[in-house]
């Protein structure tokens, strides 16, 4: 493992705020979110539905639908250049070429009327001056790389001829086509069954190693994070509540929400009547509470939590938490 100090910051997200202007009101989907993606790391973003993790990742590529969405504040610095200030034309060079996305729904993320080859070749030729025949060879190579058997035959298949797992591999091949330095994987395994999930996660890890990529992995599954990531960001109510390297987070979660999430994972060696749950509901994104957003569900909540919003602060080296009364940091390592 490389040491932390030598790592370069590839993507520096500063105070990102994304709102959706709906008929019911303004939805604050991402609220003042800041984080960094280092070169060569896999950064996990975990949170439940509506926590803002997907919108965060889409915002970095400016893929949110405008309207109703709008990135209202912040900076997304990609190798020092603010993505949010780029023109649509410049964005076309960034999408697929600098940052590429692996999508959640392998069944619908491919266009049904074009062959998978055509869809990969299109992505290749968008970012290089490669001839058609050469691009086709490269497409076959990419299919081989993502583990599709008989790629020279499969290249002419249509999406509906492939299984879900195979389609997800094709989507990864498309993401790799422009040779981007950053891959954003938005719930890449959610729609797949468990064995295929493991294969796809292994593939993403392999690609990160062999192709020298940095990966942002968005998931609601802490198990996926544990298997795959180096660092993890926990999101709740459009905010980051905890940020930590993976191992300490599992051993010693700091935020009560993270603690609750971890205790709700069923353990194989324990027999329980009922699974642990975090009581209550996520806050209404149309009317977020003034204080801590987790406070109504938090066992440790005090008066202060209702009134005063905790800010993200460093609790230990490399570990950030947004809580007035976090769990104690254990230093036995």
């Amino acid at each position: 493992m490389e040491s932390q100090n030598t790592l370069k910051v590839l993507l520096d997200v500063k105070n990102l705020t994304t709102r959706f202007f709906t008929d019911d009101g303004i939805v604050l989907a991402v609220d003042n979110v800041s984080f960094q993606l280092m070169e060569g790391e896999i950064l996990g973003i975990v949170g439940e539905s509506g926590s803002g993790k997907s919108v965060t990742s889409m915002s970095t590529m400016r893929l949110i639908p405008i309207p109703p969405g709008e990135i209202t504040e912040g900076q997304v610095l990609l190798k020092g250049r603010d993505v949010l200030k780029c023109s649509e034309k410049e964005m076309q060079d960034i999408r697929g070429n600098e940052i590429a996305m692996i999508f959640q729904e392998p069944m619908t993320a491919l266009n049904p009327v074009y062959t998978i080859g055509a869809q990969i070749i299109e992505a290749i030729r968008q970012h290089s001056k490669m001839g058609k025949a050469k691009a086709r060879e490269r497409a076959i190579d990419l299919l081989k790389l993502v583990g599709i058997p008989a790629p020279e035959k499969r290249v002419d298949d249509y999406p509906h001829q492939l299984s879900g797992g195979m389609r997800q591999r094709v989507i990864i091949a498309i993401a790799l086509a422009g040779n981007p330095s950053i891959l954003i994987a938005d719930e890449p395994t959610t729609a797949l069954d468990v064995t295929i999930q493991a294969q796809i996660l292994r593939l993403i890890r392999e690609i990160k190693e062999t192709q020298n990529k940095s990966v942002m992995l968005i998931t609601h599954d802490l198990g996926v994070i544990a298997q795959t990531c180096d660092r993890v960001i926990v999101m709740y109510g459009a905010e980051i509540v905890e940020q930590s390297p993976v191992r300490p987070l599992y051993k010693n979660p700091l935020h009560p929400y993270t603690e609750g999430l971890l205790s709700s994972i069923p353990k194989m060696d324990e027999d329980v009547e009922r699974l642990n749950v975090i009581e209550g509901m996520v806050p209404n994104p149309l009317a977020l509470p003034a204080g801590c957003r987790f406070c109504s569900r938090c066992k440790k909540a005090q008066e202060r939590c209702k009134a005063e919003k905790p800010t993200l602060r460093e609790a230990a080296p490399g570990r950030l938490v947004a809580c007035h009364y976090p769990c104690e940091v254990q230093t036995d390592e």
């Binding site: 590529m61 999408r95 590429a100 999508f103 959640q104 619908t108 993320a109 266009n111 968008q126 970012h127």
Partner: peptide, 12 residues
Amino acid sequence: SDYLRTAKAKGL
């Protein structure tokens, strides 16, 4: 649709 988002994410 998702595939249009994929197309956009390619940089088209």
